[in-house]
Computed example of a mutant assay.
Amino acid sequence: MTPLRLVFMGTPDFAVPSLRALADAGHEVVCVYSQPPRPAGRGQQVQKSPVHRFAEERGIPVRTPKSLRNAEAQAEFAELKADAAVVAAYGLILPQPILDAPRLGCLNVHGSLLPRWRGAAPIQRAILAGDAETGITIMQMDIGLDTGAMLLKDAVPITAGTTASSLHDALADMGARLIVEALDGLAAGRLTAEPQPEAGVTYAAKLTREDGRLDWTRDAASVERQVRALTPWPGCWFDAPTPTGGVERIKVLKAELAPDPRKAAPGTLLDDRLTIACADGGVRLTLVQRPGKAPVDGAALLRGFALPVGTRLGDAACSAGN
């Protein structure tokens, strides 16, 4: 392996294994770029990103520009004279002068099997869609949205037990391995970038809190996947009617498929274990949380919440809570 002079650009936990792997492989990471510190957590205290903190632990200089579109930021980047830049969930668009500055270009660690799930939320979208597998693509970046030519790919299955958290961790580790391989191959001339096929392109739109609303008129398998895909962010929820005529928003942290022999109307509470009828079958909500309370199983929630069997959770309750 030939040690390379690298710039690393990343922000969340997903990017940390890649940065660690590059440093441990003996590459010279001359600078790390990350999103600026922001308020986070219950106290909303300003915190540095996970990548920022890791870089400081390793003694690597960190820059946190709000934009890379101005000439000054682009000149500062070019002055680093990097062989390559590695980008992993950075969060800023790289303009053409940034892409052109490193000798070997900018390589992206992307959490899907491109061209499927280009965009902001590939891990969650793959689970939501019921994909059988996903993976990591190491891509030579261009000016488009995840449209660059591909250097390396590897796949991982999505099983009935796969959650966004477990898939995130598996792909972060896979990305760390592949980016080291890709840089070695690129520097040695063993790898040639392959253009993405035009067929099979899908986009992983950014997630919002509204994506977490559970819709009982969908089939049970879709609802169960939604809980696995969107926990912890943005989180899944439904609005339950209260005895006073209001609604209370209940978070759903875990769920499982359950039969609905009655074939009740979607949204009907079927039993004292918090099983809800869907369009096809039912889901049992096995870990839920009321506002300001600790998570409990579905049966425990019903023991402390007046929600009789046969109650219909539907659009009326949802709209009243917004």
Results as ranks from 00 to 15, higher is better:
Ala199Gln: 14
Trp237Ala: 08
Thr202Pro: 08
Arg249His: 08
Ala240Arg: 08
Trp237Glu: 09
Ala205Glu: 15
Gly212Asn: 09
Glu198Ala: 14
Leu253Met: 04
Val247Ser: 11
Asp219Asn: 08
Thr231Ala: 01
Phe238Ala: 06
Thr231Trp: 14
Ala240Asp: 03
Leu257Asn: 04
Glu210Tyr: 10
Asp215Ile: 12
Thr202Gly: 06
Thr231Glu: 15
Ala255Trp: 02
Gly246Tyr: 01
Glu210Pro: 11
Arg218Asn: 11
Gly246Arg: 05
Glu210Trp: 14
Thr217Leu: 03
Thr217Gln: 10
Thr208Ala: 06
Thr244Gly: 12
Asp219Leu: 03
Leu207Gln: 11
Leu230Cys: 07
Thr244His: 09
Gly212Met: 12
Lys251Asp: 15
Trp216Lys: 06
Glu224Ile: 00
Pro195Phe: 08
Thr202Leu: 09
Pro234Asp: 01
Glu198Asn: 14
Tyr203Cys: 04
Leu214Ser: 03
Cys236Asn: 13
Pro232Cys: 02
Ala220Ser: 09
Lys251Thr: 11
Pro243Trp: 03
Val201Arg: 15
Lys254Ala: 13
Ile250Ser: 07
Thr217Cys: 04
Ala255His: 04
Glu224Leu: 01
Glu198Phe: 05
Glu256Cys: 14
Ala204Gly: 12
Ala204Asn: 13
Pro197Trp: 00
Arg249Lys: 08
Asp215Arg: 13
Tyr203Met: 06
Val227Phe: 13
Val247Ala: 12
Trp216Glu: 03
Thr208Ser: 12
Glu198Trp: 07
Glu248Phe: 01
Arg249Gln: 13
Arg218Val: 03
Ala229Lys: 10
Arg218Asp: 14
Ile250Arg: 08
Pro232Lys: 00
Gln226His: 10
Pro197Cys: 00
Val227His: 11
Thr231Lys: 05
Lys251Tyr: 09
Gln196Pro: 04
Arg209Ile: 02
Val252Gln: 07
Glu210Phe: 10
